[in-house]
Design a binder for these strands. Structure first.
Lengths: 230, 230
DNA sequence: ATCGTCGGATTGTTGAACAATCGGCCAAAG
DNA sequence: CTTTGGCCGATTGTTCAACAATCCGACGAT
């Protein structure tokens, strides 16, 4: 869950990288800023991102913005149309199914592998975080708690690569959630599922946890496609 | 569900994209060239890639090379050391386990979901390709046939995202296979496994196919870590 | 109303420039 | 002899300005 800092490098480069004062490249900071605006729904799907405009707004060079775009494009948050510009990615029905296919693969695999007690505890923490948000009627908190829950499940596997894949998938989903989030009770119904899945995980009933999670994801996909229209 | 061909793009952008004459950007072509040299073992792990050198060699601008580097870095084929340059990625023991964790997740998930007859046929074709290569004593062909086999398995799911993830993982593995490939009989032992897995798949025994594939991957990881030296 | 053409705007790519940073070398100090 | 310190060359990070290529929309001709 934490693993906030960047991935490690080579043998002793790892230590060096961990020690290094984090001075993200300008391009990285631009990408981070855009990622933020995307997550907050400030930039809606389909919107166009003009290089020069962003360069001026953020006070950086066009080339730097370009590098940032490359990052975001690699994460599928943005789509490049050659000679036309980059646009905020907009997912359609097929993409939703695709995203859920990825989630089914990595989440179910991760939970069926179990995980260290600390990692299971992280899952539990996310469940409680969701309950607290529900009690406080904090819709935004409910949403992020749910993402923490699924992120923690993937983190069970302890794989750097699976973690980044999952975080990218979640970032993609945030992109078109802004439509669905208006439905205030959207996540609330998932709380019991999370609780049950977590219990099964804690009890070591990994196969059952996997089944539950799979069913959950299937239902979630169904609902998403319904909300998204067709 | 069929959506036989890749998921569509934007409403009519799909047609445009399909129609568009493929004119990869210069940066893309540079990236492709480097990818090729990486796959052929011309650029060994740990090797340094100097911007200006490559820019001169390929007759492009340094900025363009930089964009190509961004692409490759996103694919983990190359690692950026800030202010020091980019180096060909070199996987260590932990990375091998990590890569196999990803493979277990997506390959097993894909095979357990079955797939259309054509996609199953593609898996069968890869198996036969491997047999033919073995008969011809074509070690190189054996290796690529094996990759086709696993690629075809993931393709069963019909997910664009899973496909790209898998192709990236395979590209990563090619990076450090050059050490192992010297062992001429490396892949040969896997042929019977592939055959059996394929048979189970064709017979619709998806759970069993998943089990076999999982065992296969575990053995393969074991062997890889052994070859790679602890 | 349809088609061709033109113009404006934006992207793709280049080349040069400069500051920042790194690694290594060498000298001085302990 | 080892270590500390600083300098130098090389490479990267970033910016800027320019140009060709391409696209979109509008305008005008048929």
């Amino acid at each position: 869950m934490t693993t906030s800092d960047a991935a490690a490098g080579s043998t002793l480069g790892a230590a060096a990288a961990r020690l290094r004062v984090a001075v993200p490249s300008v391009a990285d900071r631009v990408a981070a800023e855009l990622r933020l605006q995307l997550a907050e729904g400030l930039l809606l799907p389909g919107a166009r991102l003009t290089e020069s405009t962003i360069a001026d707004d953020l006070g950086v060079s066009r080339n730097t913005v370009r590098e940032a775009f490359a990052e975001l494009a690699a994460e599928r948050l943005v789509v490049r149309h050659p000679n036309r510009g980059v646009f905020v990615a907009s997912l359609e029905a097929g993409d939703i199914h695709d995203v859920y296919t990825v989630r089914r693969a990595i989440e179910v695999s991760a939970i069926r592998g179990g995980g260290s007690p600390e990692r299971v505890a992280a899952v539990r923490a996310a469940v409680e975080e969701g309950k607290a948000a529900a009690a406080a009627n904090d819709e935004e908190g409910l949403g992020s708690a749910n993402q923490h829950f699924h992120g923690a499940i993937v983190a069970l596997a302890g794989s750097r690569r699976l973690d980044t894949i999952m975080s990218q998938v979640l970032a993609e989903m945030r992109l078109f959630f802004h439509k669905a989030t208006v439905d205030a009770h959207f996540y609330r119904g998932y709380l019991p599922d999370n609780e049950e899945i977590c219990k099964a995980l804690e009890a070591g009933e990994l196969d059952r946890a996997g089944e539950l999670l799979l069913a959950y994801l299937n239902r979630s996909e169904e609902r998403q496609t319904a909300v998204h229209g067709e």
